[in-house]
């Protein structure tokens, strides 16, 4: 028989109302890291259960979207992509923007989608948005697997001059985009818990953000001074232009964009985690 003073892990949990725990216990999330991976695996396997093509859909869907964009924006609207083949341009930016927007929209529904689970058992709630981001990262990697051969193909044909030597930057770009996506998503999730109609606004907001980001056009082709300023401070400009610079050789990286990207991501994550930490303790009473 052991005495309580030497409980197995020496763990002591103190529960009191409105406890100021400085946002979140990140250490606890780390202890539950296996749960993060298992949740990611679950979402991934369940996504393609009872489908014929399975994970192939992760390839077919962006291919279709990029083909449509090539026709609409490239052939019909004749948007200049600074000499980069349209199909490569759209596949690449769709992959990164898709990763970001999926992080924001899924995570903005964290509480609403998991209300039942959260009402039954305690675990660090932040594991859910993190695993969502990992799941969308898998989707990005699958798309990258088409982009890379395509980029090499155009490089060999002499149509583009990519900067593959900067490829080591890619993980950093993904980390920043992922953090920004998680941060923005969980910040919004605290609001959608109370007002369901905000979820529709989130969809509209992400679309607006897309048109104000260099997704369907490169920064270098923008002449409007107002749009230029917006693009400079938009935290998604730097990652999009960076990845384009690496894979297609064309990309305009402004220092102010890089600073904004890093600052906004860190701010969104900590602010989001703080608000999330407050909401997760009482949201069961309001859902």
């Amino acid at each position: 028989m052991k005495s309580s003073t030497e409980n197995r892990q020496g763990i002591h949990t103190h529960i009191a109302p409105k406890e100021r725990t400085a946002g979140h216990r990140w250490g606890e999330v780390w202890r539950y890291r296996d749960l993060v991976f298992l949740l990611t695996k679950k979402t991934f396997t369940l996504q393609y259960k009872q489908t014929i093509l399975g994970p192939l859909w992760s390839v077919i869907y962006p291919l279709c979207t990029s083909a449509i964009m090539t026709i609409v924006f490239g052939r019909i609207a004749k948007i200049d992509t600074a000499g980069v083949p349209h199909i490569l341009f759209y596949l690449l930016t769709n992959a990164l923007w898709g990763f970001f927007s999926a992080c924001v929209s899924t995570n903005s529904r964290t509480f609403v989608d998991n209300a039942y689970l959260f009402g039954k058992v305690y675990f660090p709630r932040l594991t859910v948005p993190i695993s969502n981001a990992l799941y969308h990262l898998i989707g990005f990697c699958i798309q990258l697997a088409i982009v890379i051969p395509l980029s090499v193909f155009f490089f060999v044909r002499g149509r583009i001059t990519p900067h593959y030597e900067w490829v080591w930057l890619l993980p950093l770009i993904l980390l920043q985009t992922g953090i920004l996506g998680i941060g923005t998503g969980i910040l919004l999730s605290s609001a959608t818990t109370k007002y369901r109609d905000l979820m529709i606004l989130v969809t509209v907001g992400i679309q607006m953000w897309m048109y104000l980001s260099p997704v369907i056009y490169p920064v270098s082709q923008v002449a409007n001074p107002f749009l230029k300023t917006v693009l400079a401070v938009n935290p998604m400009t730097a990652p999009l232009e960076c990845i384009r610079f690496i894979m297609t050789g064309k990309g305009q990286i402004l220092p102010v964009s890089v600073v904004s990207a890093v600052l906004c991501s860190v701010l969104a994550l900590f602010l989001g985690a703080w608000v999330f930490g407050r909401v997760e303790k009482t949201f069961m009473d309001t859902v």
Binding site: R8, Q9, T13, A16, K18, L117, K120, V121, Y122, T282
Partner: peptide, 28 residues
């Protein structure tokens, strides 16, 4: 409250050890 699914309006709870909650079987 003990499982930390929601927080108390007043008062303090101290738990000296790890907690397993089975408010339902097969959650998840």
């Amino acid at each position: 409250l003990i499982c930390r699914i929601t927080e108390p309006t007043d008062g303090v709870i101290d738990l000296y050890g790890t907690v397993t909650s089975m408010l339902e079987v097969g959650t998840g």
